[in-house]
Structure formats: structure tokens, C-alpha cells
Write a protein that binds this DNA or RNA. Structure first.
Lengths: 150, 150
DNA sequence: AGGAACCCTAAACTTGACTTTAGATTAAGG
DNA sequence: CCTTAATCTAAAGTCAAGTTTAGGGTTCCT
């Protein structure tokens, strides 16, 4: 089993040392060991847990909820239902986020087209842009809803 | 042209009144008019701008950058290149975010399967779960990278 | 044994995006 | 005119997720 200092972990995972210590304080690194002198010794298991933290954080989960999940894991099989429910919720949440982003991407794609043309024409006041706008508005509910003058 | 009070706008867009005032203070509502007595009068143009704010916020943009964009819009055609570049950047950013979320979703989907089975078995210590894990790890680089014990 | 490089904690500070509070003003209806 | 609901501002407070600072300890190498 490999071991790593906090500095090594910071480099490996591209997380700052102070963030790692902060995570520890917040209970996200329950299992890191220490030397007799109090210095943290990270093992592969901890690296793994940190990867999980990053992943859950990416989905918009708060640290305190991630911590709760790890606590459930430590509590053992009795918390399987909670953990299952958490991942079901997470799934719904992520799907919703992707949908929202996809809508924004539709609008942004339209804006890219719009400004590419505006850049070529040197102005925003040209009939070609009206044409573009009409086309976009017909193709997407979200674009129709948000598209403005600029 | 319709006009709306701040309270009406708040209800229509499901944004709190204090948030609207905060946006105004932060320069995101440059064009709202006021009565002689100083009360805000929102027009459709402002509603539109607020929709744009929501959209850009959804993509993770900061208010001050959204404000900069609106300032560019007011400056006129000379800022078309900046605006174009902004939307190109936004597009890249959103695509990256969707990718990250998709990876997390892959892992979460695996976890849902995992815990569905664990819930049925009443425990996490069963050979069936090992089988599931091996299968998942073979199918996705990201799942392989993050999947841990729980 | 001594020094460089690394690590430690506690506590205060930062940032972004709001929300809350307090006290005053305005607008609309009877 | 008077009340009442809605609005206003300025300033302080909140919350999450860190970062920074200050002042010490620990390890490793020679």
C-alpha cells in the first residue's frame, strides 16, 4: 500500500494543501492516518475518497452532504437505503442540470452564429441578423424564450 | 409596451424582490426606469434582460461578467468582437461542464445499480456486487477512475 | 546536532451572491 | 385626507468554500 504526504496528494489531484486540510477539518477525510508527530499520511483509500469528493462536488453537492454520505458508509449495511436514495436523487439532479446547460448551450450557439455574422458585417443592424433570429426562434423553445436584442 | 412593478416581476420570474434590487445595484438592470418618486418601472426589455441574466448565470458566469457583457451591448457595434469571443468562450465552457456532468452521471448510474442490488441483498458484501463493479469498470474510464468501495 | 523543507493548528479573512433589518417614502383606494 | 400595501435605500448579516496569516512543530539529510 502506497502512502503520500499532503503535498504529494495536492500535486497528484491538483487540490491545494489548504483545501485538503479544510476537507479534513470538515470530516471528509475521516480515515487519514497520522505519524506520531501528527503529520498526515494518505493512503490509496484516501485518494479514492478524494476522487469521490471531487465527483460529487462536480454534481453540485455540498460538502456537508458528502460528509453525511461517508458517515453512512462507515455505519455499514444499515444505511444502504439512504445511500441508494441519495444516488437516485443525485441522478435526477444531474439530469436536470444537463438539461439546463443544454438549453443554455442552444442559446449560446445561436449567439455565436449571430455574432459571427455581426462581426463580418461590422454591425448588429442588418437584415441578415433578423433572418437568423427568426430561424433560431422557430427551432428552440428556450432560445425563443430568452433571446433578446444582443 | 407593458410595464411591471418589482413585485410583479419577482413573481413572474420567480426571483426575490431583494435579488432584483441587488441585480440593479450590481449594474445588471441599467435600463429600468423610475417614477418621479423613485419607484422602479420594469418594461419588457428589462424582463428580457433578466432572462438573459438567468441564462448566463446557469452557465456559471459571474454577475460582474454578465454586467460587462451588458455594458458592451450599450457601447454599440465597436464591441462586437468582445461579445463574439465571450460567447465562444461560453460555449467551450458549457461543453466542458456537460462533459464533466456526464462523467459524474455515469458513475452515479453505476452507484444506483450497485445500491439497488445491495438494497435487495441487504448487504454490500456479496459477490454479485463485485461482478457489477468489474463490468462498470470495464465500460467507463471515469467510473474506473473514481469508483471506490462505497 | 543543525538547518532546509515540509507539515501542523487556530483563527481571521475573502469572495460571490444573496438576505435581512431598520427606518423612511410613495402610490392607490375609499 | 388618510390609511395601507408596496416600495425605497443603506448597511449589516449569512453561507459555502476556501485562503491567508501567525506562530510553531517534524523529518530528513549530512
Amino acid at each position: 500500500m502506497n502512502t503520500y504526504s499532503i503535498g504529494e496528494v495536492a500535486k497528484m489531484l491538483d487540490i491545494s494543501i489548504s483545501t485538503l486540510r479544510y476537507y479534513d477539518k470538515e470530516g471528509l477525510l475521516n480515515s487519514v492516518e497520522r505519524t506520531a508527530g501528527g503529520i498526515r499520511i494518505f493512503k490509496d483509500k484516501d485518494i479514492n475518497q478524494l476522487n469521490m469528493v471531487e465527483c460529487l462536488k462536480n454534481t453540485g453537492m455540498q460538502l456537508k452532504d458528502i460528509r453525511t454520505f461517508f458517515e453512512w458508509c462507515e455505519e455499514g449495511d444499515s444505511t444502504i437505503p439512504q445511500r441508494y436514495q441519495m444516488f437516485l436523487n443525485r441522478r435526477k439532479d444531474i439530469e436536470k442540470q444537463i438539461e439546463v446547460l443544454q438549453n443554455s448551450l442552444d442559446l449560446v450557439n445561436y449567439k455565436c452564429e449571430y455574432y459571427a455574422l455581426a462581426a463580418k458585417e461590422g454591425t448588429v443592424n442588418t437584415p441578415k441578423l433578423q433572418f437568423l433570429k427568426n430561424r433560431a426562434v422557430k427551432s428552440s423553445d428556450y432560445v425563443k424564450h430568452v433571446v433578446g436584442e444582443n
